[in-house]
């Protein structure tokens, strides 16, 4: 974030709707990818994104340090996505859900990768998915992850370790040799 972004958040806090819509435009992908990685379902991700921005709009004035806006927004997105996963009583995501989100038939390789990743992520708990998505996609460091997820840094470390172990098993990448 730079000074222009901070000014945008400041104006949005003051009730400037144009500033709010600009924020939505800039952070739509950020929020959608975060919640999608957790809920693993396009329709749920869409609903959770909309809900996240509504919560952001309602609570923007409670944000005291505007420099923390991205992590604050990520925290809302993660909480909203985890709540949605908890609420829904659906079957686990199918590969078709991932196919639905792919734009065209010319991206077959990408689709295969998305299918593999979706299937692997589906085996994780929503909490593990959250930490993986925030780390891998946005590169938040452990301190930031702890703030976003409201857990100790040690728990972040442990969740990432276990999530990656599960993913490695799910991908079943064969390893050569043995351990000493």
């Amino acid at each position: 974030m730079n000074e222009a972004d901070w000014d945008l958040v400041r104006r949005a806090q003051g009730g400037d709707i144009d500033a709010v819509t600009t924020i939505i435009s800039r952070y739509e992908r950020y929020v959608y990818q975060t919640v999608y990685g957790i809920v693993q379902h396009p329709a749920d991700a869409e609903d959770a994104s909309q809900e996240t921005f509504l919560k952001m709009y309602r609570s923007l004035r409670t944000l005291h340090d505007i420099r923390t806006f991205p992590t604050w927004l990520a925290r809302i997105a993660v909480r909203t996505a985890l709540d949605r996963v908890e609420q829904r009583d659906r079957t686990p995501p199918t590969p078709m859900d991932v196919l639905d989100s792919v734009p065209g038939p010319d991206e077959v390789r990408r689709t295969d990768l998305q299918l593999d990743v979706a299937q692997a992520l589906a085996r994780l708990t929503p909490e593990h998915r959250a930490v993986i998505v925030l780390r891998e996609v946005y590169g938040f460091d452990y301190t930031e992850l702890a703030q976003i997820l409201a857990i100790p840094v040690g728990t972040v470390r442990s969740r990432l370790h276990h999530a990656r172990l599960h993913l490695r098993t799910a991908f079943a990448v064969p390893e050569e040799g043995g351990l000493n």
Partner: peptide, 25 residues
């Protein structure tokens, strides 16, 4: 890590989502 990054970064945005969010706001 690279595979997850690539796959999630390639997730397509639903058409019209921004319009719906702005309308609700």
């Amino acid at each position: 890590s690279a595979q997850i990054r690539t796959a999630l970064a390639a997730v397509a945005m639903p058409p019209g989502l921004e319009t719906r969010i702005v309308a609700s706001i």
